[in-house]
Computed example of a mutant assay.
Amino acid sequence: MSKYAKTWWGQRFIAALEGFTDSGRLARGRSYSTDNRIKQWLLQKGKVDAKLRGNTNPYYGVYKEPTYKVSVQMTHLSEVQWQKIIQRLSQRASFIARLLLNEIPENIEAVFAEAGVHLLPKDYRDFKVACDCPDYEVPCKHIAGVCYRLAGQLDQNPFLLFEMRGLASEKLLRELANSSLGKVLSDAKSNATVELMPVDSFYTRPVLTELPQEISLKSFWQGQQPLPKSIEPSQPATIPAMLIKKGGDFPGFWQKQNSFIEVMEDFYLRMRKNTLKGL
């Protein structure tokens, strides 16, 4: 498995690239996936158009630092094939739930196999690439660099994989919204923004109240009403930490190799234990 992608679908994407490219070329290509090399990045309609900073190379007659144009896309599925796939996806609650959490179900290829296709790339025939550098090998190190960068974005947003196959995420959500199960996914992934409410302070401020003229010592120390003798145990959430899980295992700010969701689950568990000890 490649260490340059974190999710299993990112790993599969890189594995397809490594399957038909020599290791030396890939090693050089990884260095071209950084911000220092990528001058421009545009991903739209399932195609990446990028501009990369190259190196001077007198052997090829390149004496001034060049800028190379690179394009990477995957073969698109037909409209008929997508309709069959969407119909089957919208009938499985497990698929809807995983997609809701920004994850691709590991058995999703079974749905695509029923339509005679596959989602994740298997070999070079799943890619359409181009680069205007003088290297005649395909993929060159610049194309490899773009693919490594793309694999990192797939980790954070698996819906890009559907776009690379020719189905925009907006259209996928709109089609799934026609079913009762798919509406859950559509609502959760909508771009509706929550209106921010202004506040006077980030902290809770004390509210001054007037004291009564006469104060009973008994009510002062014991309160106006007796405290309950027992506290009902709290019920765990039906879908715990939904807001965190919607971001996926590897959100954009999370640069570690381990799952962000697993770290937060452990954190919540330890906090809950500490809270119960104090009761």
Results as ranks from 00 to 15, higher is better:
127 F>Y: 10
26 L>P: 09
198 P>K: 07
104 I>R: 01
159 F>L: 15
185 L>K: 06
219 S>K: 14
154 L>S: 06
134 P>G: 02
264 M>W: 10
174 R>V: 00
87 Q>P: 00
73 Q>M: 13
232 E>P: 00
4 Y>T: 00
15 A>H: 08
53 R>C: 14
56 T>I: 15
278 G>C: 10
266 D>I: 03
169 S>A: 14
5 A>M: 05
179 S>H: 11
70 V>K: 03
232 E>D: 07
107 N>T: 08
256 K>N: 08
246 K>A: 07
215 I>H: 05
54 G>L: 11
204 T>L: 15
260 F>G: 00
214 E>P: 00
81 Q>E: 14
111 V>Y: 05
48 V>P: 05
222 Q>N: 09
89 L>N: 02
159 F>V: 04
262 E>D: 15
239 I>L: 09
115 A>T: 03
97 A>F: 13
121 P>W: 13
2 S>G: 02
18 E>P: 04
212 P>T: 02
85 I>K: 03
6 K>E: 01
19 G>Y: 06
20 F>K: 05
67 T>K: 08
71 S>N: 10
273 K>P: 01
98 R>T: 10
88 R>A: 08
207 V>Y: 13
30 R>Y: 10
261 I>C: 04
127 F>W: 09
258 N>C: 13
63 Y>R: 12
275 T>W: 13
71 S>E: 13
116 G>F: 09
